[in-house]
Design a protein around this nucleic acid. Structure first.
Length: 218
DNA sequence: GCCAACGTTGGC
DNA sequence: GCCAACGTTGGC
């Protein structure tokens, strides 16, 4: 991914060329992430069948290649949304069941749905004895850390827009769903919130927000 | 730790 | 296919 900031003014021919290249890279970037999701994970240690199910964004960052299998999804709606994910799609990383729930970063889907190995592992808290290898019940995707934000966007903060800019968001409407689809207007608004209110500038969101701002001007 | 909301199970 | 009972999620 190109993380260069886009230039706005065009003076010389070469500058113009550079701008065009930057435009292309951002457009390609947005083209390659047609869908946006929200993935919930618990950042605080909690035992389930004797196993700690904690997985924070820090834990993801600590993984080799900052990459992990998103397993343990045991809800049919959530599973179906997982199965709709494509390589290159992005998702908000949401911390749930903790002191201050909220979005703490962005991950990228690097491998599309494959049978979740934990369903066949009797030692896993997600073991499902009913599931057959020939016809697996549950699926996982591979995710890679895209951005860890300096500041989280808390659920409390998001709730301020529950009936306005973020109306219809599954986070409020279907609060128990651990894998959610995020619509384009919701994604755009949340990224604007990140840049404006939290004053957090990171490569991905800066690119996206610049793109959005220029889109508005056009 | 409580409990509302909501998903799942299973008898009929 | 209905729905009561039960289990789980996750904010507070």
């Amino acid at each position: 991914m190109t993380k260069r900031k886009r230039t706005i003014s065009t003076v010389s021919q070469s500058k113009q060329k550079e701008t065009k290249e930057n435009n292309n890279s951002v457009e390609q970037e947005l083209e390659s992430c047609r869908q946006f999701f929200l993935l919930k994970s618990e950042p605080e240690s909690r035992l389930e069948k004797g196993v700690d199910v904690r997985f924070s964004i820090q834990d993801l960052e600590n993984e080799p290649d900052q990459s992990a299998t998103w397993d343990g999804v045991r809800n049919y709606q959530a599973r179906n949304i997982l199965k709709s994910m494509k390589v290159g799609d992005l998702a908000f990383f949401y911390h749930s069941n903790c002191k201050e729930p909220g979005i703490v970063g962005v991950v990228r889907i690097t491998k599309e749905a494959f049978p979740d190995p934990t369903q066949f592992d009797p030692k896993s808290p997600y073991y499902d004895p009913k599931s057959r290898k020939e016809s697996p019940s549950w699926f996982a995707v591979q995710v890679k850390l895209e951005e860890r934000w300096n500041k989280k966007i808390s659920l409390n903060q998001l709730k301020n827009y529950q009936t306005k800019q973020l109306s219809g968001m599954d986070l409020f409407k279907r609060s128990r769903l651990s894998v959610q689809k995020v619509l384009e207007y919701q994604r755009n608004f949340i990224l604007e919130l990140l840049n404006n209110e939290n004053n957090t500038k990171t490569a991905f969101t800066t690119n996206t927000t610049n793109y959005l701002e220029e889109q508005k001007q056009e």
